[in-house]
Amino acid sequence: MQDIREEHRGVSFQTVNEDEAGARIDNFLIRVLKGVPKSMIYRILRKGEVRVNKKRIKPEYKLQAGDEIRIPPLRMSEAKVVLPSANLDRVSALKDAVLYENDGLMVINKPCFMPVHGGSGVSYGVIEALRSIRPELHFLELAHRLDRETSGCLIVAKKRSVLRQLHEQFREKNMQKQYLALVRGVFSKRITTVRAPLAKNVLMSGERVVRVDEVNGKPSVTDFKIRENFRDVTLVEAYPHTGRTHQIRVHLAYRSHPILGDDKYGDREFDRRFEALGLDRMFLHAEHITFTDPVINREITVYAPLPGDLENLLSNIRKEDEEGEQHV
């Protein structure tokens, strides 16, 4: 039997980020207010208890980046998060993954293959795991997201006021994120900027993908800088100026430099030759994040070291390149 508890929610406010823009308010609330019946969500919308920018809205209202949503007090039943015993080691490892922490937030080094939250057939993610191992924290919410396959810096807010300020920094582009990606081929320029609008699509199979779309896409900009050149691949730093879904992955594939190990936008045939060198997942890591910590009101940069499996792959590629030069 599921362990059910009643939780009372006071008035809360959420700021819509760029990736959430375009969603209908009813669908947004259904996703965010897990455990609340849909009938209640439509009732509070109909009665005007949900406000966007202090105004009443209809269920079909489409959210815009920067919208502030007022959510009224709610009482809802939630199933207590029970984490699968088979994954307890991975969950416990999060205790040692904290890179930076104070009273208002924490930055963790998100492991690869762990989604940031449960859903879509996944029973738990980083946020559910953190709530399980840190039950003394009454508020834990993701400030942003990383793909399931991506490792590295992830900010989690411990106070709603801090969450609002972090969202403000994302919206005003006052937060800088830097990723490392290993890509096919050799970059022709040391620094490259990709400006290609992106749009979400659903294939006939039901798979969700992102494509470059000059007509319907949202503006998307990423800077790339070479970190290290190899014979057939390049290690690049990626600096996204916008926060679109799969932005770095799609922009690199669009420029014919797909990320190694990317099973959605990559080159599987090319990847096979690197499997013997240790490639077993997408090589994308959120290495640095720079932001103003609302608690201390000072700009900080948090660094997440490259995981051992990716370091090992790079070492093997360097060794193979050196051996190849010796035989020339």
Rank of each mutant, 00 (worst) to 15 (best):
L198C: 07
L29P: 05
D280A: 13
I300G: 06
S161G: 13
D67T: 01
L203N: 01
V32H: 13
H246I: 08
S188V: 02
V250S: 02
R134A: 07
N297Y: 07
G261T: 08
N229C: 09
N174P: 02
N174Q: 14
K47F: 11
A129P: 00
A129W: 00
R273K: 14
I108F: 08
L99G: 10
M1F: 08
N174W: 02
A181S: 06
D3S: 14
E168S: 01
V210K: 00
P115Q: 09
R51L: 14
K319V: 08
T301W: 06
I127M: 02
A238M: 08
L105A: 11
N87Q: 15
G324H: 14
Q247F: 01
L182Q: 07
K62C: 07
A93Q: 10
I259S: 03
S151Y: 05
E20K: 03
H138N: 12
D263T: 15
E269N: 13
T242Y: 01
R164T: 02
L180Y: 15
G266P: 01
V156Q: 04
H257V: 09
T301R: 12
K225G: 05
E78G: 13
R70L: 06
R24Q: 06
P307T: 07
P59W: 07
G121A: 06
R148L: 12
T150V: 13
